[in-house]
């Protein structure tokens, strides 16, 4: 367990990304830096279109940076000269969900380890059922297709599919964005439980400040495009986190510290949106 905890330190150094440099030249990220410790639960909050997904895609190895670099445990993951390469050490859970609808829950979950030949089919199945059971009794849904599950269950299965690969970092790109308040709250509980069971480095992207403060050890607030880290905030709330913390003095104090900054960035993003539409 300790071994695992010592892995997954992410170092984001002056990361920059310009889309379509020859034409429209959209500067999505500029001089974006953060130091994330192994096992830390980090939330990144920022207004829509500020470059959150761009940063995540660079870490996941889906796209290239145009400046700066990102290191995982001292090894360069992304830089202008590094060929983007996705891998099982950093798996993404997407906003709209990306379980393979043509595979059963169990087939989805064992896809990674069997594909990489880390586990045989039987061992993978046993591990999958165990993890599914621990993550809220999902093992009974093993033979179902994702389309037959609620969106909350789908998202949890997706987290399990990522964790099956023993990733160093779990990347969550606004996974609960489309959910109502009640399901969202239930998902927070599940995610916190899962994180306690499998303490990986987590990068949780959201534009919901309260969600970020409730879940994370550290919250970064990003500026509007081009995205940079504007503020960094340590959340010193005890774990396990409980709902009554949401009205605690410490929580409200933290919220007071950043809410103005987040609002300011959101306002800028909104005004620019209006200008660009006009």
């Amino acid at each position: 367990m300790n071994d695992v905890l010592h892995q997954g330190a992410l170092s984001i150094r002056q990361a920059g990304k310009i889309y379509d440099p020859a034409g429209a030249a959209v500067v999505a990220l500029e001089d974006c830096s953060a130091e994330i410790r192994a096992g830390e639960f980090v939330a990144i909050v920022g207004p829509s279109g500020c470059g959150k997904s761009t940063l995540l895609n660079a870490i996941a190895g889906f796209d290239r940076l145009t400046s700066g670099e990102i290191l995982l445990d001292g090894v360069t993951l992304a830089s202008p000269g590094t060929e983007p390469r996705p891998g099982p050490q950093r798996v993404v859970v997407f906003q709209h969900g990306a379980l393979f609808p043509w595979m059963t829950v169990l087939e989805n979950v064992i896809y990674g380890p069997t594909r990489q030949r880390v586990l045989g089919a039987d061992a993978a199945r046993a591990k999958a059922l165990d993890m599914l059971r621990r993550c809220g009794g999902l093992d009974t849904a093993g033979q179902r297709y994702p389309g037959q599950l609620s969106s909350g269950m789908q998202r949890r299965v997706e987290i399990v599919r990522a964790l099956m690969n023993e990733p160093k970092v779990l990347l969550l790109d606004e996974p609960f964005r489309a959910m109502d308040t009640v399901s969202k709250s239930a998902m927070h509980r599940h995610l916190l439980d899962i994180h306690a069971l499998y303490p990986k480095t987590v990068l949780f992207i959201t534009h919901d400040l309260e969600e970020a403060l409730f879940l994370a050890d550290t919250v970064y607030v990003m500026t509007t495009r081009p995205g940079r880290m504007k503020t960094m905030l340590r959340v010193n709330l005890a774990r396990p986190r409980t709902l009554d913390m949401l009205v605690s003095h410490e929580y409200l104090e933290l919220k007071r510290q950043v809410v103005a900054g987040v609002h300011e960035e959101a306002q800028k993003a909104f005004e620019r949106g209006e200008r660009e539409l006009a």
């Binding site: 996941a60 190895g61 889906f62 996705p86 891998g87 099982p88 950093r90 798996v91 993404v92 997407f94 709209h96 990306a98 393979f100 896809y111 990674g112 594909r115 990489q116 599919r161 690969n165």
Partner: peptide
């Protein structure tokens, strides 16, 4: 997303 994930998963 499906193509990306398949690559991530190996």
């Amino acid at each position: 997303e499906h193509l990306w994930l398949a690559r991530s998963l190996g």
